[in-house]
């Protein structure tokens, strides 16, 4: 390769490596702020401020979704496999909200009871796609019990 071209090649490599290192260090320094939500373990262990708007996310523990018969209030537990967080919400849940599925909740942790009072619940879809017949067949195979065990909550 011609020396002048080699020099320009080094210039190109320098730009790419330098910008990668710069942005990489920035992302590393901001890593806590780049996540959309806290995991239940972080909330329960007191790493989040009380009475401040935050987001939490995790898998909705099967069998814990309790709906109030007279209102739109609903309570459920979310987990990341380490700790469980009690969430209360009043409103309409998204269609894909379900037990054994991940959800992201937006709201505040109250200091008195340590529960999460959500003003918004979003369903976090997983990366599985299959036809209904296949889902039925798999249900017949594993008994159809939803669990949070093999779930990837993004933590």
């Amino acid at each position: 390769m011609h020396p002048a071209r080699k020099q320009r090649l080094y210039f190109v490599l320098f730009i790419v490596i330098f910008s990668t290192v710069a942005i990489g260090l920035m992302a590393y320094a901001l890593r806590a702020n780049l996540s959309l939500f806290y995991g239940p373990a972080q909330v329960v262990s007191g790493q989040v401020p009380f009475d401040t708007r935050i987001r939490a996310g995790g898998c909705v523990v099967p069998g814990t979704v309790a709906r109030d018969p007279d209102s739109l209030q609903v309570g459920f537990l979310i987990t990341d496999g380490v700790a469980n967080l009690q969430v209360y919400y009043t409103g309409i849940l998204p269609d894909l909200f379900g037990e054994g599925e991940a959800a992201v909740v937006n709201g505040m942790v109250r200091e008195d009871d340590g529960a999460f009072y959500a003003s918004e619940v979003l369903a976090k879809h997983d990366e599985q796609y299959m036809p209904p017949e296949v889902a039925e067949a798999m249900k017949a195979y594993d008994g159809g019990e939803k669990s949070c065990e093999d779930m990837n909550y993004g933590t």
Binding site: I15, V16, S19, T20, L36, Y38, H125, G154
Partner: peptide
């Protein structure tokens, strides 16, 4: 060239951080 750093970030963002978007 400076912007190329963004491509692996987009690709791996769902694995590195908690996101609403599902993994690949």
């Amino acid at each position: 060239l400076v912007g190329t750093v963004n491509i692996p970030i987009i690709y791996k963002s769902v694995d590195w951080w908690n996101t609403l978007h599902q993994p690949a």
